[in-house]
Amino acid sequence: MPAQNETMIERVIRILEVFGAGENALTASEIARRAKLPLATAHRIVGDLVAARVLEREPDRRVRIGLRLWELATRASSAMSLRDIALPYMEDLHAVVKQHTQLSVLDRHDVLYLERLSSKDATSANTATAGSRLPALQCAPGIVLAAYSLPAVRDELLTWGRLTEFNKQTVMGRDDLRKIIAEARRVGYALAPGWIHTDVSGIAVPILAADGGAIAALSITIKRDSADELTYLHALHTTARAVSRAMNVENLVTDPRLNLLKQQIRRATDAD
């Protein structure tokens, strides 16, 4: 159940967050259950959001995310600016490697995928889609983003980041993950062999700001133990450097210390 001192804005956000990537429509009862809100409260908030066109109601009374929310998000989102700048370079990379290609950022303890280019010629499976999330500690983009974060942000993630065992290859030990992150910083990339799908490796490199911190991660998924791994890595690094040069990083990058502060406030609020 929601905390008694939870604000209306926090409840609205919880409702919007129940719509996962690729989710079409939900009933108010389903929303209430997923958001852990009383049914009457969920009904009232959903009605207000429909009236504001943030949610849209289907003929069968189910609701889905409305175009109004997308419109508002695209106006001011630095993530959308990042995507727009990176996309032409991603398309060139995708044409060369012919593998699923992703752009992602760190959002609290998750990796949020901003864009994904799929390929019918890809040698691996990939469940990531634009708008989807994965635990940052258990995918290649999250490892490389942690590696190029401020130490305080990295420690916060290693201490509080969620762990999900996708299969027996998934690294679950926090001490092991700390060593893997340190190695990713040393070599300049992260490799996650079989962590999510046993026959698939994720490989990611950072897109760096002027101060050396990571703005985002550029990644591909490949068949595990691929002989072309070094070729793919070279192409990833070349593309990431091109994106970094194309961006006015001083204006687009958010101070990682602000992200840490937001995480600390959220954790303190959750504890109340």
Score class of each variant (00 low, 15 high):
residue 100 H to W: 14
residue 104 S to R: 06
residue 40 A to Y: 05
residue 4 Q to A: 13
residue 101 T to Q: 08
residue 120 K to A: 10
residue 3 A to S: 10
residue 92 D to N: 13
residue 27 T to R: 11
residue 163 L to F: 01
residue 225 D to I: 11
residue 38 P to F: 07
residue 174 R to M: 06
residue 107 D to P: 01
residue 80 M to L: 14
residue 238 T to C: 05
residue 182 A to G: 12
residue 262 K to R: 15
residue 62 R to F: 07
residue 55 L to H: 01
residue 133 R to D: 00
residue 192 A to P: 02
residue 37 L to P: 00
residue 128 A to W: 03
residue 79 A to Y: 09
residue 39 L to C: 00
residue 9 I to W: 07
residue 110 D to M: 07
residue 253 V to Y: 05
residue 231 T to M: 11
residue 11 R to L: 13
residue 208 L to T: 04
residue 246 A to R: 05
residue 20 G to Y: 06
residue 47 G to V: 09
residue 234 H to D: 13
residue 269 T to G: 05
residue 259 N to T: 11
residue 192 A to H: 00
residue 264 Q to N: 11
residue 35 A to E: 00
residue 234 H to W: 09
residue 189 Y to E: 01
residue 164 T to R: 09
residue 55 L to V: 11
residue 249 V to G: 02
residue 126 N to G: 08
residue 219 S to Q: 06
residue 97 V to E: 02
residue 55 L to R: 00
residue 178 R to Y: 03
residue 29 S to V: 12
residue 67 L to G: 12
residue 167 N to A: 09
residue 66 G to S: 07
residue 196 I to Y: 02
residue 193 P to F: 04
residue 211 D to M: 06
residue 205 V to F: 03
residue 19 F to I: 06
residue 197 H to N: 10
residue 41 T to H: 09
residue 215 I to D: 00
residue 3 A to C: 09
residue 134 L to E: 05
residue 216 A to L: 07
residue 74 T to G: 04
residue 121 D to A: 15
residue 250 E to A: 15
residue 132 S to R: 04
residue 213 G to Q: 09
residue 191 L to H: 12
residue 265 I to G: 06
residue 165 E to G: 01
residue 245 R to S: 10
residue 53 R to L: 13
residue 56 E to Q: 11
residue 166 F to R: 04
residue 167 N to Q: 05
residue 102 Q to N: 11
residue 9 I to G: 03
residue 34 R to E: 02
residue 259 N to K: 11
residue 214 A to P: 02
residue 63 V to L: 06
residue 46 V to F: 03
residue 211 D to G: 03
residue 86 A to D: 01
residue 216 A to M: 06
residue 199 D to L: 10
residue 79 A to L: 07
residue 13 I to Q: 12
residue 229 E to N: 00
residue 225 D to E: 04
residue 160 W to N: 12
residue 264 Q to M: 15
residue 22 G to F: 03
residue 211 D to I: 14
residue 158 L to E: 02
residue 203 I to E: 00
residue 176 D to P: 00
residue 80 M to I: 15
residue 215 I to A: 04
residue 89 Y to E: 11
residue 35 A to I: 13
residue 234 H to K: 14
residue 96 V to Y: 06
residue 237 H to R: 15
residue 181 I to W: 04
residue 4 Q to C: 10
residue 86 A to Y: 06
residue 126 N to M: 14
residue 147 A to G: 01
residue 212 G to K: 11
residue 132 S to H: 04
residue 7 T to V: 14
residue 38 P to G: 07
residue 158 L to G: 00
residue 171 V to L: 05
residue 150 L to F: 03
residue 131 G to P: 06
residue 150 L to M: 04
residue 232 Y to G: 06
residue 122 A to T: 14
residue 5 N to F: 10
residue 216 A to Y: 05
residue 155 D to E: 15
residue 127 T to D: 04
residue 171 V to W: 01
residue 148 Y to T: 10
residue 138 Q to G: 04
residue 181 I to T: 08
residue 82 L to Q: 00
residue 179 K to T: 12
